Amino acid sequence: MRGRGGATVRPSVLKYVRVRDYLRSLVTHELAVGDAIPSERLLCERFGVSRMTVRQAVDALVVEGLLAREQGRGTFVAPTKLDLEVRLASFGEEMRRRGMEPSSKVLAAEQVAASSDIADALDLLPGEQVFYLHRVRYADGEPMAIEQTWVPCGLAPGLFDDGAPPSVYGELRRRGLEPDWGEDTVAATEVDAQDAELLGLRAGKAVLRLSRRTFAGEVACVYSRSSYRADRYVLWVPLRAPRPALTPRSTEATG
Rank of each mutant, 00 (worst) to 15 (best):
P157S: 08
A241L: 15
D21K: 12
A196T: 12
E70P: 02
K81I: 00
A230V: 03
P248S: 14
A193G: 01
R2W: 07
L14Q: 05
G6L: 04
D184H: 12
G154A: 10
S90D: 13
A32G: 14
A119L: 02
R225N: 08
F91G: 11
A36R: 13
G74R: 05
R137D: 06
S211P: 00
P242Y: 11
Y16M: 10
S227M: 12
P165H: 06
D117P: 04
A68Q: 09
Y233I: 02
L82T: 09
R174I: 02
M52K: 01
A145D: 04
L67H: 00
L124C: 06
R96M: 09
V151S: 08
S226H: 05
E218V: 10
A245Y: 09
P152I: 02
W236S: 15
S250T: 15
R10D: 07
M100K: 05
P143Q: 09
A57P: 01
A113Q: 09
P152A: 07
D192M: 07
D231S: 09
L43Q: 00
S224P: 00
P143G: 10
V207Q: 06
S12T: 04
W150T: 11
E70C: 05
L159I: 12
A32T: 14
G170T: 07
Y16D: 07
R10E: 08
P38N: 04
Y132S: 15
A113Y: 03
G217K: 05
A241C: 06
D120M: 07
G182N: 11
T189C: 12
L246A: 13
A206R: 15
G48S: 02
G170Q: 07
P152F: 03
P244N: 13
V54D: 01
E64L: 07
C44P: 01
V186R: 10
K81C: 00
V19E: 00
Q129A: 15
H29V: 12
L159G: 13
W236N: 13
S90L: 09
A220L: 06
T8W: 10
V17D: 10
L31A: 07
P38I: 03
Q148I: 04
W150C: 09
Y169A: 15
F91V: 10
C44S: 05
E110S: 15
L133M: 09
T8L: 11
V63A: 13
A109V: 11
L14W: 04
P166M: 12
G141S: 10
T80K: 03
E147S: 15
T53K: 00
L208W: 15
E190K: 14
L42E: 14
L124W: 03
D192V: 12
L208D: 00
L172I: 11
R229Q: 08
E110W: 00
R20W: 04
T254Y: 03
D161Y: 03
E64K: 05
L125V: 12
L23F: 04
